[in-house]
């Protein structure tokens, strides 16, 4: 039974309890909040893969999210593509940019890589802002059609929620299978010491580029979902501050921990909403939570070791399955 119950529970919450509760509340605002939280779960999961698991601190993740959103916006408003095509297309375009950016920068280490991604992220922002004939610049692109993939009308709050939840579950599955496997262990080896990993014969640069491609693909999909559900995209939504928000989710949740990324995303989206009564303190709250977390909980709310233990026991991760089902590693 192990390896079945916990995934079933996640599935039940995502597709049973949450939508039932939200429908019972019947509030568009709550549905919207759930959608945004799930979109940011996809973003934080994808960043967790780069920053937490592979150890590449990126400060420009929002740019890929923006590329995805603009791809979806332009394809659906100019060419009339429906959401069934724009969502995968956004992922692919974003992953293409991810690989193009990764090729020259992946040889940089630690702080140099962080700075390069900051620079590239701002370059993409400046381009979105100034290429007025293509992106309409600071005006943004409006009237993006809601989600109607392949003729199915999912533009109702429940339909939108279910589609986003399905894609978020898919993203979770992908990140889970990548991170909790021998492949994921290889990425952790890069994080700990990439020179050593290189000396052991691991193809360091190729692994980093592959990880970057997967993560930017997911970020692009999150962007497309944002564009279709908001109906309007604007360069200001994909700036440095947004990258920092996603980074804060990963750091608060716990670097390297997949459940942590979800906890972090939920906390940093829902807590500022709960604090809305005392004024616009969203970014201030993000900064404070991040600082307190780094200071007092350097491993995050859901540290990597706890998370790996949980995943190994409950989610049937790839390295559980030795023939005798003996736990691997030190006990």
């Amino acid at each position: 039974m192990r390896g079945v119950l916990a995934p079933l529970a996640v599935f039940a919450v995502l597709f049973g309890v949450l939508p039932a509760g939200l429908s019972a509340a019947g509030s568009g605002y709550l549905f919207r909040l759930a959608d945004v939280t799930l979109i940011f779960c996809i973003l934080s999961l994808s960043m967790q893969l780069i920053t937490g698991v592979a150890g590449l601190l990126t400060l420009g993740h929002a740019a890929f999210y923006g590329i995805g959103a603009y791809t979806a916006a332009i394809l659906s408003t100019r060419l009339g593509f429906d959401a069934g095509l724009t969502i995968p297309a956004s992922g692919l375009v974003s992953a293409l940019f991810g690989v193009l950016i990764a090729l020259p920068t992946m040889r940089l280490v630690s702080i140099y890589f962080a700075v390069a991604t900051l620079g590239l992220g701002e370059m993409i922002y400046v381009t979105l802002l100034n290429w007025v004939s293509f992106t309409r610049g600071p005006l943004g692109i409006g009237d993006i059609p809601p989600l109607r993939p392949f003729g199915f009308d999912l533009s109702s709050p429940l339909g939108t929620y279910l589609l986003i939840a399905a894609l978020a579950a898919l993203a979770l599955l992908v990140v889970h299978r990548v991170a909790h496997s021998y492949y994921g262990n290889t990425l952790r080896a890069l994080r700990e010491d990439d020179q050593c990993a290189d000396a052991m014969g691991l193809p360091v640069v190729r692994l980093k580029i592959e990880t970057f491609a997967i993560a930017t693909f997911l970020a692009g999909i999150a962007g497309a979902l944002w564009a279709h559900t908001t109906g309007y995209v604007n360069p200001a939504d994909f700036r440095f501050a947004e990258s920092i928000l996603i980074l804060a989710m990963v750091v608060v949740g716990g670097l390297g921990s997949i459940p942590g990324a979800i906890v972090g995303a939920a906390l940093l989206i829902l807590l500022p909403e709960a604090l809305r009564a005392i004024g616009r303190v969203r970014i201030l709250a993000v900064g404070l939570i991040m600082f307190l977390c780094i200071l007092f909980l350097p491993k995050g709310l859901f540290g990597e070791v706890t998370a790996l233990d949980l995943v190994r026991r409950q989610f049937g991760a790839a390295w559980r399955g030795s023939p005798t089902d003996r736990p691997l590693g030190w006990r």
Binding site: L57, I111, A114, I244, L247, A248, V251, I283, L284, V286, G287, L288, M290, F291, I294, L295, P298
Partner: peptide, 12 residues
């Protein structure tokens, strides 16, 4: 961690 903490302080 210092990079992130100075970033967090700058936001605050």
């Amino acid at each position: 961690s210092t990079l992130l903490s100075s970033l967090a302080i700058s936001i605050v």
